[in-house]
Design a protein around this nucleic acid. Sequence first.
DNA 1: CCTTTACTACGATGGTTGTCGTAGTAAAGT
DNA 2: ACTTTACTACGACAACCATCGTAGTAAAGG
Lengths: 121, 121
Amino acid sequence: MTTPTQAELEILNILWGMGELRVQEVHKQLNEVRPIGYTTTLKMMQVMAQKGLLARQLDGRSHIYSPVIQESTTKNKLLSRFVDSTFGGSRSQLLMQLLGNAKVSDEELKEIKDFLAQIEE
Amino acid sequence: MTTPTQAELEILNILWGMGELRVQEVHKQLNEVRPIGYTTTLKMMQVMAQKGLLARQLDGRSHIYSPVIQESTTKNKLLSRFVDSTFGGSRSQLLMQLLGNAKVSDEELKEIKDFLAQIEE
DNA sequence: CCTTTACTACGATGGTTGTCGTAGTAAAGT
DNA sequence: ACTTTACTACGACAACCATCGTAGTAAAGG
């Protein structure tokens, strides 16, 4: 399975949030973050469709694109790869790097603890 | 500051573990993992030295290379970037992905909780 | 002194990624 | 019918990354 590149992930993140969109709308959202040409967005999405990352269906004269791969599956894969390459595969080492940073808000900390408690059951 | 690429990180990981080494030795260690040409390793390390990622000093007719950038600083930066691009900057979201989907051993879980408790102070 | 060996320097290449420009086509407005 | 607009298809391109080949230079061994 192909994993998305950086720019592809940006598009996927939009689509995961919105379900399905036309290029135009994805493009608009991308441009709220950074300048990018319309044909760039288009090309990316076409390539992604060809790769099997996106599906598209004709609607009038334009296409509507929707994500094929699942968010959590994909992010899991990316995370796994990142842990491998950066932390030698050690999840806890990543964790300590993540939390040892001291920039974790109390709120985040609480979220995490709640989550841990929930897992425990 | 330039951040290391994938292949550069492999070399850095070796050097962080060993302190300082000649190309030959780094090359040998890399080859224990995957096949790679000597000049490839050499070129990488030369480029890294030029980028300021490595320092080198002459020893006889060869160079001894050592890392300039710090391990935790670097990994922090990489982690930060990864969180931004993949999880929209949310550390807790990364955490839940990390703990929720993959299998976490009880041991790891304990490590994490201990660490959290320690942070809390 | 000559040959082999050990490093190094330099340049070239192929693949991937992200970026557009141009041009074609179909629809919609006038 | 004609012009403008909205998408799409196609190809080109620069940047970067990883990879290596070739050739130079200096030391070491005979």
